[in-house]
Design a binder for these strands. Sequence first.
DNA 1: TTGTAAGCGTTATCAT
DNA 2: ATGATAACGCTTACAA
Lengths: 338, 338
Amino acid sequence: MFEPVTIKDIAKALGLSTSTVSRALRDTHEISAATKQIVLAYAKEINYQPNPIALSLKERRSKSIGVIVSEVANSYFSQAINGIESIAYDRGYHVILTQTHESYDREVINVQHLASRSVDGLLVSLSSQTNDISHLSYLHEKGLPIVFFDRVADEIETHKVIANNEKGAFEATSHLIKSGYKRIAHLTSSTQLSISIERLKGYEGALKANNITINPSYIKHCPHGGMIYEETENAIKELMALDEKPDAIFVAGDRLSTGCLSVFKNLKISVPKDMAIAGFSNSDVLDLFNPSLTSVRQPAFEIGQLATQMLLQLIEAKYPVEEFEKKILDTSLFVRNS
Amino acid sequence: MFEPVTIKDIAKALGLSTSTVSRALRDTHEISAATKQIVLAYAKEINYQPNPIALSLKERRSKSIGVIVSEVANSYFSQAINGIESIAYDRGYHVILTQTHESYDREVINVQHLASRSVDGLLVSLSSQTNDISHLSYLHEKGLPIVFFDRVADEIETHKVIANNEKGAFEATSHLIKSGYKRIAHLTSSTQLSISIERLKGYEGALKANNITINPSYIKHCPHGGMIYEETENAIKELMALDEKPDAIFVAGDRLSTGCLSVFKNLKISVPKDMAIAGFSNSDVLDLFNPSLTSVRQPAFEIGQLATQMLLQLIEAKYPVEEFEKKILDTSLFVRNS
DNA sequence: TTGTAAGCGTTATCAT
DNA sequence: ATGATAACGCTTACAA
């Protein structure tokens, strides 16, 4: 079974040396047109395919990039991965995909697994549990190109690509305020996540801009970002148990938004009928049909593309890069239309 | 920058030979406990990481599997990929992801790119454009382990994992019939796709079982499976232009189902108000909120897991496998609840 | 128990 | 223009 053809086989069959064959196969000038033709013809005939692993060993690069996300089955990430793959494909890179499921331990393992030189660079969106980023900074200092997207680590000096979370949150919250809501709660994920911090800032900014006092009991954290139903349910139950129930919620995450909607769908406790929800969500299906969500859409595909371009730039840079960029892409607000 | 530590470095530093170091690092018994400790301690100190590429070259395996799907940003596939990744992770394999975007050419390129010995096996769901599978059968004959999932090629003798498409289609169509619909159209993707054929069979079976004549003009193909809005729109317009308009549609695909719903949402032409739609869809968000779709849900995660288990079994088999399995997992029907 | 050497597939360097 | 050789990092006979 599976006996791959090597340069050696071609050399033997044609009575040439491996170096000659190698030269013929690439576009070196130090070879006669005649032998070149013979080699190429024979290589084609027996369908020779170069062994990328041997090449990787020699050139100390694998032509592949590692991607670390929390969940593939999340519209935002699957769209981002689509963007990542599109650029990687064009540039001849493989995409190696890993998930953290929001677990710090798993993130560390994945990073190390990928990084032990089987990957030329890393595209990272941090897990919600991640506080300590030494596993990444260690590699970064060693020279492994890393680009963050979405959930970034400010401590590490490298390229970053994010959505304008603060502005998106500001707009969503402002939209709720303009629509007449006054007691706006904020449902968000883990406290330390960059996206949570930015979105919280936008939420608070909008309240301040409208002279609404920030009510700390209106701000609820779900560290697992909507992955655990009960967590979201409890947060909402607590909000609904308040003396002054909120009349709207700004939700700061994709899974959290749908989680929130399903809690409201199932909830037995009394919920204001005209409760409004605005939240980050990249599910194209959701805002096509769900009438009760105003969604903040992130340009996930573009973020993935841009992050990949930047990573490949770092990987292929001849000299160490000194200037790092933080690209911030605008979100768009999809307002419910009925 | 990035000067990786090798076994050679350790050997030099400790005044040992590379083979001794290599032995110490693994669990060979042909080594003294003393040197072993010294080597392990030093390796840890300088944070030695073995180079997987060198290992791959030596052992002729990369501990990675290639995945070929049409689109990541499709609930079905992202869930399947989640399952794939979960098993691959447990078994220490990397997942290399590629997309065909339903293009045959791209499928061929991806297959070749992955297969040229950088991957130990392939998990394939065919593109809707694929007729000719020689690019796969060639590799399969050469001994590359391949497992198909979802969209399979019956011509190739290997493991396959699919949902019970025929039964799912039968149930969905039957459900429409039981609900009182009589003129049930069928919106499906490319003619040659295994899933299309199976779902068509289930649709026709349900009609026959209920003594309803099959109306060929009720069966519409969208080769791009809902990826091109106009294609879906035209199909539906044609259905709606028929003298005897259908009163229900059974839709045979994930993107096609949402595409169909959005067409109805946008369509200006007259559409029966009580038009019922039942279709394959794996969007958990969709059937949570959309009242107008009865959805056939595939166990995508389990399909991904099972396919990966089977692939790894093939990869790690000591002897060529002769008996191949076709696993068929049941779908479930989510009926609209209002 | 440890070291030497060959080999995995390729390319670069140096001869010829 | 072509061939021999070493090297990429690792493992494994085989020798010592």
